[in-house]
């Protein structure tokens, strides 16, 4: 069948990797804050704000790198808000995250509306690596990917090294599992939690910027269409591990792209059902993970979602 010919396979993989990039960045952001014990359900909202910041800045300045910087700032502003609510004010983390997402959905469409459908002025370019073209199959795939793909891979590897191979990462993992113990060992728990939530949120903002500057050509309300929530699921699926996150994100990128591809070849399947694919797979995958890890540790930081109150540590 034509769908499985070499070229198509390559295109499919390239499309999956492109679709995976925003998911991967958002998932990494989620991993960071959840490793510090803070559930981030505001990912969807942070992506939207990152996207709208990048969109507006790219219209005003024609500079994609400035747009990226502002998306990082926008995301981290929401991250600071989430951290303030969850850590300082000790609110319920789930409700706080939902609040962030609702607020950001409204704010982003309020801000984006004033630019009424105009295109972002810049796109992030592809990174051409000509010598890779000489390697037959995989070389051709990796020779013309977008800059953001490489940046997201790079961030994932940096996070892996940071979390698992450094003293700092040891502190981070310790405090996700037992903040009281980490505190007694001299780790400043609140500072770590603030920092991780804000950096994580900045990554979510970057994910939003990727979406608008690489993936979707123009702004529309609810641009992320649930990708932030899929990222929340990917955090669980990847077992809070940055390298796993790369593969999980690409797998979900594949599901997303398959929908489009199947539609090209089988026009009689209504597109609505194909669009359900990523959401359905998310549920199925989570069910599978839950079933497999029944009565076993699933890699979740033990104190995830529990507010650490220093005055009440055991």
């Amino acid at each position: 069948m034509e769908i499985f010919s070499m070229d198509i396979m390559q295109l499919l993989i390239i499309a999956s990797i492109s679709a995976a990039t925003p998911l991967l960045l958002a998932t990494l952001g989620g991993i960071l804050s959840e490793r510090a014990g803070i559930i981030n359900l505001g990912i969807e909202g942070m992506m939207l704000i990152g996207a709208v910041c990048a969109y507006i800045v790219s219209i005003y300045t024609d500079s994609e790198w400035l747009a990226i910087i502002f998306s990082l700032l926008g995301g981290s502003a929401l991250g600071a808000l989430l951290a303030f609510l969850c850590i300082t004010l000790r609110s319920n983390q789930i409700v706080a995250g939902l609040g962030i997402t609702l607020f950001a959905t409204g704010l982003s469409s309020y801000l984006g509306k004033s630019f009424g459908g105009s295109q972002p002025q810049t796109q992030i370019p592809n990174l051409d690596i000509p010598w890779l073209d000489n390697i037959p199959f995989f070389g051709e795939i990796f020779s013309h990917l977008n800059w953001m793909v490489w940046i997201s891979f790079f961030i994932a590897i940096v996070l892996y090294v940071a979390i698992f191979k450094t003293r700092w990462g040891l502190h981070l993992r310790a405090l996700g599992d037992g903040p009281a113990a980490a505190d007694n060992a001299g780790v400043n728990v609140y500072r770590y939690q603030y920092l991780m939530t804000i950096i994580g949120a900045a990554l979510c903002g970057l994910a939003g910027a990727t979406l608008i500057l690489v993936y979707t050509p123009s702004w529309n309300d609810g641009l992320t269409s649930g990708r932030g929530w899929i990222a929340v699921a990917l955090v669980i699926f990847s077992r809070w591990h940055p390298i796993n996150a790369i593969f999980c994100a690409i797998l979900f990128g594949l599901f997303e792209t398959l929908g489009f591809k199947v539609q090209l070849y089988y026009a009689d399947i209504p597109p609505y059902f194909l669009k359900m694919m990523p959401y359905l797979t998310t549920i199925v995958v989570l069910m599978w993970v839950g079933w497999r890890n029944k009565n076993k540790p699933n890699g979740q930081p033990i104190s995830l979602g529990k507010t650490y109150i220093r005055e009440q540590r055991g």
Partner: peptide, 12 residues
């Protein structure tokens, strides 16, 4: 959509 923004702000 301003309504959503106001509601979100009220929530937090």
């Amino acid at each position: 959509s301003m309504a959503l923004m106001i509601q979100g702000a009220i929530l937090f």
